[in-house]
């Protein structure tokens, strides 16, 4: 464990210098969005009455929360991981120390987890100020955002360890992350989607996290314990499989 923590410590040391940029993407932009979109478009949606008594702002806040976790996970797992293999090569330096590959991977994922938790806490605080959070259960979004982040990041860690150029990441962003964010229930309920797209949403980890986050912050959208466990298990499966793939990819790259 001390070994894992020493990796986390290095990540935090570096983050001390780079946190400003991340505040923009993981805090300012989502907040702008909640204000710009949630409030203005929300007033039209609320007049439409399709969501019943639920305010649209309240509806998208948990969705945006999960979506922000997805962004953070992508941001911390794509270029940074690729860079540590290809550009700055610090993974190669780390593997020459007593650290094992699993320590390196574990430390970086732990750092991601911290980023996810702090981002989520700030997001919750800000949206609470706009009265968009309606239950103490909202605390439950913390582990959900963390789990979603790992579920998404771990496979991308594996991907970043295997690709030979960074040009794949904009593709991943545009063909996977953005479509997921737009159609996995963040902005509108997925029962409005055509059958095929709905199944794509079911497959995406984001939808499961959105359902759980919404259940936590909005009383009307609660789910049964069994359903919640099902969603969590699905996310955990992504996280577990992703971790296994990442470990294999890292070993292949570092210990040959």
């Amino acid at each position: 464990m001390a070994a894992v923590l020493s990796v986390l410590e290095t990540d935090l040391m570096a983050y001390r210098r780079t946190w400003r940029a991340s505040v923009l993407s993981s805090f300012v932009l989502p907040t702008l969005f909640v204000l710009g979109f949630g409030l203005s478009v929300g007033s039209f949606v609320d007049r439409g009455g399709q969501l019943g008594p639920v305010h649209y702002l309240d509806f998208i806040v948990p969705g945006m929360l999960a979506s922000t976790a997805l962004q953070v996970a992508f941001g911390e797992s794509s270029f940074p991981v690729f860079s540590k293999f290809e550009w700055i090569r610090t993974y190669h330096a780390m593997v020459a120390t007593p650290l094992r590959v699993v320590d390196i991977l574990g430390g970086d994922l732990l750092f991601l987890l911290l980023r996810l938790l702090t981002t989520t806490v700030v997001f919750l605080a800000v949206t609470s100020a706009f009265h968009a959070v309606h239950s103490w259960w909202a605390i439950a979004v913390l582990p959900v955002a963390g789990l979603l982040g790992i579920a998404v990041a771990a496979p991308i860690f594996a991907f970043a360890a295997r690709v030979d150029q960074d040009g794949y990441f904009p593709m991943l962003m545009r063909f996977v992350v953005i479509p997921m964010s737009l159609f996995a229930g963040v902005f509108f309920p997925i029962d409005r989607l055509p059958e095929v797209l709905r199944w794509l949403a079911y497959i995406s980890p984001l939808w499961h996290a959105v359902v759980l986050c919404r259940a936590a912050t909005l009383p009307g959208f609660g789910v049964s314990v069994l359903t919640a466990v099902g969603h969590l298990a699905y996310l955990a499966a992504w996280a577990g499989a992703g971790f296994w793939l990442a470990l294999r990819a890292f070993r292949r790259r570092l210990v040959i």
């Binding site: 478009v41 039209f44 949606v45 007049r47 439409g48 399709q50 969501l51 649209y56 040009g167 904009p170 593709m171 545009r174 063909f175 953005i178 479509p179 737009l182 159609f183 902005f187 509108f188 409005r192 989607l193």
Partner: peptide, 26 residues
Amino acid sequence: LVVISGFFEPLLYLLSIGVGVGGLVN
């Protein structure tokens, strides 16, 4: 591919926000 994807992005937004969210709006 990046260049091509530049075309899909506004289309996806249109489908998600315009059509998806639009379904909730009068």
